[in-house]
Nucleic acid binder design. Structure first.
Lengths: 279, 279
DNA sequence: AACTTGATTGCGCGATACGCAACAACGCTC
DNA sequence: GAGCGTTGTTGCGTATCGCGCAATCAAGTT
């Protein structure tokens, strides 16, 4: 009775989990090893509440106090939780941070973004690029060619002006206002559509922040259209930008609309893999 | 190459912290709920190795493959681990990062210091770190990347030696003399500039107390310069240390002078927000 | 001091997690 | 390509181990 168990254990599909935990009352997965599942649920409860007592947690997980307590002791032995005072409430401990250090050590924007970029390239049929801010321009780190025969030239390793590309505008939008000002010098004109007025660029950046993506049509090169969205790290900082680009004649208004959705989803997914997305 | 950061600290934290789990075959605590204890041991193994297979882990914990596997499945359901490919090896997952975010969120030091750190990073253009004393080393809680492009090595969650870093020396300076003595063991040499003599370190700590900031040039890593200052709470205790660090070639004598002023101001501001200095 | 709330701890039962062994995908070598 | 070794994955039966119960201790609160 205490356990709404299921005999079927461990089906290999981690496919779903649409909104994960959400604000649902219990955080139990009900999958795998029961006690471990409960222990991990405790961590999630603590993450949500910040601090909680044994009784409180027992109620949330719908288990007996003593059960919750023993799980707590085990978690505490590994320093994943700690109690505020002897015989007091519990909260997350420094052990978590140690684990997190090991996790971030392997987190690399390129590594995480590549498979996502591949899917994006497949879905749109256009070329996907990944860029970061470097010095005073956009540095292209990776590129996945689209399916079309018309191959773009390889931007990887190139420094590209920030004000004339979708990626650049996304990266600018991730800066603070004061930092942004430093980048508003020397707005070179590339085409008649290039944004060269500082005030116009400020407005454009504001709009990018607002809508969460950037568009660049014929701004760097006539006939080149690009859509970009920001990739964020744990702290919410914009660490990179991912874009879809192709010839303007192929990227019609309707296809651009679709691309916007796909690019934003891809960027969101990449951000999640880098740990972004608590609330 | 923005940060000629070191790899030795990144990979192996077995440098010091002699006891605790040690290099013993098993990382098991042997306390509390068995299955949970084992599951958490798995996390620690993964943190140490970065990546491991089921069989490998089973051997390390001295349990059967199937046992290890089921624990894995449970951990995976909570996104604390993930596998590289379908039917592949395992590594730590993003769930850890989410928990870590919640861990630091409850520490008001981080809450108060982050906006200040952000300004500091902007003013200096270098990377800002926030550290506290944990165990017998400096635990890095937060990091704000400088304006230079590539994200420097992420120290968050890492334990860093106290005697070879500016943050560490600030934290040591915050200890009482008696408490300080306990930390003067095993002064590992990292570079020719590392302070390894106990008497020299005592003198250095005294100087840090005197001048209210610490400097570390090439002491942990050749080419790495850092400046740190103490953050105090209401009672005047040193609760954390905030630092600016960057490549030595960029941090010239003049810029270090300026950084010292900025770091001290930032630390002072953070201290005030934590209630220090209310007469 | 009685009362309330909440963290800890023996105890005994039975659900549950474990080890075993077989299975299924690989990646080798020959 | 067949054979073989390795490694992740899954049914099954049993004994272990975790759980719920209830008692106990330690603080506040009235």
């Amino acid at each position: 009775m205490t356990t709404p168990v299921d005999a079927s254990v461990a089906s290999g599909n981690t496919a779903e989990v649409p909104d994960e935990t959400a604000s649902a009352p219990a955080a139990l997965t009900g999958q795998g090893v029961q006690s471990v599942d409960r222990a991990l649920a405790i961590l999630e409860v603590l993450a949500r509440r910040g601090e909680a007592g044994v009784t409180e947690i027992a109620a949330e997980l719908d288990v007996h106090k003593s059960t919750a307590f023993r799980l707590m002791v085990t978690l505490e032995a590994h320093r994943l939780v700690e109690q505020t005072v002897e015989r007091g409430r519990y909260r997350l401990g420094v052990g978590i941070l140690r684990l997190a250090g090991a996790t971030t050590a392997r987190l690399d924007v390129v590594q995480e973004a590549r498979p996502i970029g591949r899917q994006l390239a497949e879905a749109t049929g256009e070329t996907v690029n990944l860029a970061v801010l470097s010095e005073r321009s956009a540095l292209y780190l990776d590129q996945i060619a689209g399916s079309s025969a018309l191959q773009p030239h390889n931007w990887v390793g190139q420094h590209i002006p920030l004000h004339a590309t979708s990626n650049g505008k996304v990266l600018l939008a991730g800066l603070s206002d004061t930092a942004l000002e430093e980048f508003l010098d020397s707005l070179t004109t590339y085409t008649p559509h290039t944004i060269t007025e500082r005030s116009a660029l400020r407005a454009e950046v504001a709009q990018v922040r607002e809508q969460g993506y950037a568009l660049a049509i014929d701004e760097l090169e006539i006939g080149l259209t690009a859509i970009a969205a920001p990739i964020r790290n744990t702290q919410g900082d914009v660490v990179a930008s991912i874009s879809v680009s192709g010839p303007s004649f192929r990227l019609t208004a309707a296809r651009v609309e679709e691309a916007i959705r796909l690019v934003r989803d891809a960027a969101m997914e990449a951000s999640h893999r880098l740990g972004w997305g608590h609330r």
